[in-house]
Amino acid sequence: MNDEIILSVKNLKKWFPLRRSIAEVFKGKRKWVKAVDGISFDIKKGEIFALIGESGCGKTTTGRLIMKLEELTAGQIIFKGVDISSLSSAKDIKKYKEDVQMVFQDPYASMNPRFRVRDVLYEPLIIHEKTKNHAEMEQLAVKALEEVKLTPPDEFLDRFPHMLSGGQRQRVATARTLVLSPDLIIADEPVSMIDLSTRAEILHMMKEVQERLNLTYLYITHDLSTARYFCDRIAVMYLGRIVELGTSDEIIENPLHPYTKALIAAVPEPIAGKENIIKDIPIKGEIPSASNIPQGCRFHTRCLYAKPICYESDNDPELEENSNDGHYVACYLHKEIN
């Protein structure tokens, strides 16, 4: 890994408009669900970067924005030095979508049941007009299947998705991204629907492919345990903002933000002797709605340390580096509580 930055996200926002009542329309009031509300991060070439958070924190929306499946409300997404909002011609957008590929969560829903594996793998080649030659297509498909360890490839090419296990489908989904030789792969919960005994095998395969082809992954997940094993750096999201960012080991072993601390405390572990212990989870209340975000630090309603500065200030705390170690935290009190 070098320090070349492949993707840079700057103050990214995605607000979804809410339906308004007639009275609100006349008053000119607008209401928004602020799914992503000003996040910034850089992904280096060749690294595995994780976005972690609970459901509704905006991690999937971020992935979709980068993939250009949603239009951003504000901010910039810069891929290899080019702002992707400025891509206007269909040709440029197509080229971008060739370089950035996505693996979806549900391997059962993300594949056309009437397509054979062959067709699944040919489709991107046809759409992106890579080749019209069938022999060449087959060659590329076979190579991709070999990369994801579906061997012998000939045996799989003519199968339908229903003839594959969940793990095998997710391998095909990965192979489908690889036929276009992308630079960045966005993997949105790629293993959460896969059985535990094969989950590690899939992660292992993805990591191997990443190292061999020098790929970059954006790994979107709610699962801290697999993220620690799989990722180089982790960004923790809460209600549309990044609250903490650092190397995986730092985040897990030395969490600075109260939310990260609560998340880590809540993760179950396969260790004996805890069956009669009531666990202490340092967080209170429930997650507020993204259409009604608390003033000040948006975590203050759940924080056990909150002080007036947290709820009286006008803005959320900005991410700041803890001590020149690449570990960033967005908390007004992080110096006090750590």
Partner: peptide, 23 residues
Amino acid sequence: GLLGATPKLREKVEELAFIPGTP
């Protein structure tokens, strides 16, 4: 095998085990 494939948050593992094949 199952226990080996269960990631442990507070333990740094280089490689997770898995069970080859399917049920």
